[in-house]
């Protein structure tokens, strides 16, 4: 809780896209994030790993203020979005998020899931929104499922629609919250492939995952979290090969 020193406002042009400063989060009396400081530059793919309950997902959700940090600041493009006067709805149009449970709207078709926010939030005309949605559905390989309801799609297909839904907003940052954890094993690959392509195109991403192969291959930086703090941070390949922290070593030896 070192929030006494006022933080230097980052340079909007060249500063980090996201800066998390002294993030603490309590759920009731449960102290799940205990002072997180990190930043994310444009084009980076930041991978968060760690045992369950370590606070990875909470940290991710603090990044677009779906969870409000109890203490600390989140800066997005040099703007303190934890400031109560921030228009969070506007900020969130620039930060896409994909969830473990897909969370598609079951009463809307795949394409309606995508167009609803384009039309109602961004104010894009229906025709144009449809084009934009189709573009994204094609990108995730599901143009023929545009008029299918989520209930008619497999888990992998639903998750790809959810990714397309987030991408259609043309976000500057994408958050992925254990997006393959609810999928049958044979469906994980298709979702990871979409994310891999996305990283290659230069999308800035923050990824909470248990897919270590994916983390190693796609991540440009990796955080290992445990008990609400960042235990170790570095290049994924190096961290997998030569972890420094005892907790990291133990965790990696258990899952690899």
């Amino acid at each position: 809780m070192s929030a006494t020193v006022p933080f230097r406002i980052p340079d909007q042009e060249n500063g980090p896209l996201i800066h998390l400063e002294g993030i603490h989060k309590w759920f009731g009396n449960l102290h799940v994030l205990r002072g997180i400081d990190t930043q994310l530059n444009t084009g980076e793919v930041l991978v968060l790993i760690g045992p369950s309950g370590s606070g990875k997902s909470t940290l991710l959700r603090c990044t677009n203020l779906l969870e409000e940090p109890t203490l600390g600041h989140v800066w997005f493009e040099g703007k303190d979005i934890t400031d109560i006067r921030t228009d969070l709805n506007d900020v969130r149009t620039h930060i896409g998020i994909v969830f473990q449970a897909f969370n598609l709207f079951p009463h809307k078709t795949a394409i309606q899931n995508i167009t609803v926010a384009l039309e109602k939030v961004l104010g894009i005309k229906p025709n144009e929104a449809r084009d934009r949605a189709m573009e994204q559905l094609t990108r995730v390989g599901l143009p023929e499922k545009a008029d299918a309801y989520p209930g008619q799609l497999s888990g992998g297909q639903q998750q790809r629609v959810a990714i397309a839904r987030a991408l259609a907003m043309r976000p500057k940052l994408m958050l992925f919250d254990e997006v393959t954890s609810a999928l049958d094993p044979e469906l994980v690959g298709e979702v990871l492939q979409v994310m891999r392509d996305l990283a290659q195109e230069g999308m800035t991403m923050m990824v909470v995952t248990h897919e270590m192969g994916f983390a190693r291959e796609v991540g440009s930086r990796m955080l290992f979290m445990s008990d609400g703090v960042i235990m170790e941070e570095g290049d994924p390949r190096e961290m997998f090969q030569n972890p420094q922290n005892e907790r990291t070593k133990k965790f990696l030896s258990q899952i690899l």
Binding site: N64, N89, R92, T93, A117, V121, A162, A166
Partner: peptide, 21 residues
Amino acid sequence: ERGQLEAARGLGMSYLQSMRY
């Protein structure tokens, strides 16, 4: 499910828009 509201808010919808759509 709570996730529905989170998905809507995550897309930048206001609380009332999330409710409505």
